[in-house]
Design a protein around this nucleic acid. Structure first.
Length: 568
RNA sequence: UGGGGGAUCGUCUAGUGGUAGGACUCCAGACUCUGGAUCUGGGUACCUAGGUUCGAAUCCUAGUCCCCCAGCCA
């Protein structure tokens, strides 16, 4: 190996890992894990965690990252979620190899460790009710009281715990608690619960168990069992770390991973909390967990986001300890960057305005050559049919053009992309509404794209589709889910719906797209020239009814100019 | 008012005693058969107040503000 010119560690966690490697803290190993709970779907916040955990593992020779389901609470978990999570992790591009684990794999070991703790006098069976335990815990400022059951003998504890396991007691009758310190200023250390009775079937262990370990107990031991070196989690677990360490110290396991906390991802204009997401889905504010407006991985995928764009985003937002809200604009930057490079260009008209080219031969059809991707010549060209009647975008015509508006207007010229320069010679309006319903234009036969006279300059180029050849399509335009940028400013009560953007979805059903899209595969992504990036909706699109989702619009300079003009 | 964390451009994020850097956003311009892309240029930041030092975002002192914790959730 050549001498690496050690680049500065990208973040404080990588710095710690590098330091640990230097000091040989874990015998030169780097082993992380991604530990989702199978009680919901993954979102982009999880993507950050995956990029961190899998990323760090991949950056080191021999580094590993496990996928482990933290399935210690059967009442909220389900196989449906584990399958969805696996598919999302794979889709994002991460590979856990043969290291797919479940905390439930360790239930027997965890139980034995608990017996050990009891024998050491470090755990006891408490028979207080949940409510009493809460009362005994004290408050943030007042120390707790010890439970009367705290002094039970080891024999009694062993007996009771064993009988808890065999199902002798009802839910809540007893609980196994760590014996730490009821007066600790850290509430997590006031004899935290290790096991609770839950007489429900577990999605993996079935009816084998009726006691289940808590996160605080199962997580450190699961990490240890798997030989994890760095256990990365979010900030809210910071004051659980003493407990994490306590469990590993008292069980005297050989591997003691280091828990390191980082700030979870918050994205502007959207929400990341499982609870709120669930509410949106259940109350029908969105169509499901894969609604393209949601920051779920399923939603982003359906929206047209690529795994690479999401990974790039996660790699660029950084990892730190301060609460932060990353702007949606940054995510959009990365999807534009990726799709600009890869997406074939195509012409589509969202709000069609009929244009008759008066001097173009009635029956003539030309096949004009169009470049598939100017960023990538290897993507080749295609033929686009052109004829006497075309549709252009309504917003590309103004009867009374404001300054800086370069598009079509009465008497003005514009180029039809890959076709001819046309001039607007007539405007047909609806008599009743005054709405412009049709344009009459003439074309200059000398200006066909690629021809010798094609060099004539016009202010603007406009996309179009041939009326006779275009395909009908539905296009769904998405906008941000929340009105305000900072999701933490949305009210906690049910009135948070007031902050939902009522225009987060706009469905256009009269769109016309070029005929080459007839064979577009579900999920495939395109740039609709001058409009944005769109993908074929994988759920609702069919050969008969094409449905496109707008992933992200193109940057729109004219929109900014116009907005500035109006602001004046 | 217990404990644990955190404060650097508009937004993220580097910088660990020596010119506060990058990305995104924004602004201006060039180029353009996408008002896209690309290119060029520009602006804006060290929570406050003291102190140490030739020199402080960094060290010290005192404040201020923000986040998390009282599940048998994770």
């Amino acid at each position: 190996m050549t001498t690496p010119d050690t680049p500065a560690p990208a973040d404080f966690i990588r710095a710690i890992v590098a330091q640990d490697l230097r000091t040989n803290k874990h015998g030169g190993r780097v082993h992380t894990r991604f530990p989702p709970e199978p009680n919901g779907y993954l979102h982009i916040g999880h993507a950050k965690s995956m990029c961190l955990n899998f990323g760090i593992a991949n950056e080191h020779e021999g580094g590993l990252c496990n996928l482990r389901f933290d399935d210690t609470n059967p009442s909220t978990e389900d196989v449906e979620y584990v399958e969805a999570v696996k598919s999302d992790v794979r889709w994002l591009g991460f590979d856990w190899g043969d290291r797919l684990f479940y905390a439930s794999d360790y239930f027997e070991q965890l139980y034995q460790y608990a017996v050990q703790l009891i024998k050491k006098g470090k755990a006891y069976v408490d028979s207080l009710s949940a409510e009493e335990i809460r009362d005994y815990r004290g408050t943030l400022t007042k120390p707790g009281k010890e439970s009367p059951y705290r002094t039970r003998s080891v024999e009694d504890n062993l007996d009771l715990f064993q009988r808890m396991r065999t199902g002798e007691f009802e839910d809540g009758a007893h609980v196994l608690r760590a014996k730490i310190n009821m007066a600790s200023p850290n509430i997590n250390l006031r004899d935290p619960t290790l096991y609770r009775i839950r007489r429900v079937a577990h999605h993996r262990t079935g009816d084998k168990w009726c006691i289940y370990p808590t996160y605080d107990y199962a997580h450190p031991l699961s990490d240890s069992i798997e030989g994890i070196t760095h256990s990365l989690c979010t900030l809210e677990f910071e004051d659980h770390r003493p407990l994490y360490d306590w469990v590993l110290d008292e069980t005297e396991v050989e591997c003691h991973p280091q828990q390191i906390e980082f700030a979870r991802l918050n994205l502007s204009h959207t929400m990341m909390s499982k609870r709120k997401l669930l509410e949106l889905v259940e109350q029908g504010h969105v169509t499901g967990w894969d609604d393209p407006r949601l920051p779920t991985l399923m939603g982003l995928r359906r929206r047209g986001y690529t795994p690479a764009a999401i990974r790039n985003f996660c790699d660029h937002i950084g990892v730190a300890k301060r609460d932060a809200v990353v702007e949606m604009a940054l995510l959009e930057h990365f999807i534009r960057e990726d799709l600009n490079r890869r997406a074939p260009r195509v012409m589509a008209v969202l709000r069609p305005l009929r244009v008759v080219i008066d001097n173009y031969p009635e029956a003539q059809v030309e096949k004009l050559e169009a470049v598939n991707n100017p960023e990538d010549p290897t993507m080749g060209t295609r033929k686009v049919p052109f004829s006497r009647v075309v549709y252009i975008e309504q917003e590309d015509f103004r009867e009374d053009p404001p300054s800086k508006f370069f598009r079509l207007a009465p008497g003005r010229e514009v180029r039809l992309r890959y076709a001819y320069i046309i001039k607007c010679v007539g405007v047909v309006k609806d008599e009743r509404t005054g709405e412009v319903v049709e344009l009459h234009c003439t074309y200059d036969p000398e200006t066909r794209s690629g021809s010798s006279q094609a060099g004539r300059k016009v202010k603007s180029t406009v996309h179009w589709v041939s009326a006779a050849h275009a395909l009908q399509a539905e296009v769904r335009l998405y906008d941000s889910l929340l009105l305000q940028a900072n999701p933490s400013e949305t009210p906690e009560d049910q009135d948070y719906r007031a902050s939902l953007n009522p225009n987060s979805l706009q469905t256009l059903t009269a769109c016309r797209v070029e005929p080459s899209l007839a064979s577009a595969a579900p999920g495939s992504r395109y740039q609709f020239e001058r409009l944005g990036y769109f993908c074929v909706d994988a759920v609702d699109s069919s050969p008969h009814v094409l449905v496109f989702n707008r992933t992200v619009p193109l940057r729109d300079t004219w929109a900014k100019i116009e907005k500035a003009q109006q602001g004046r």
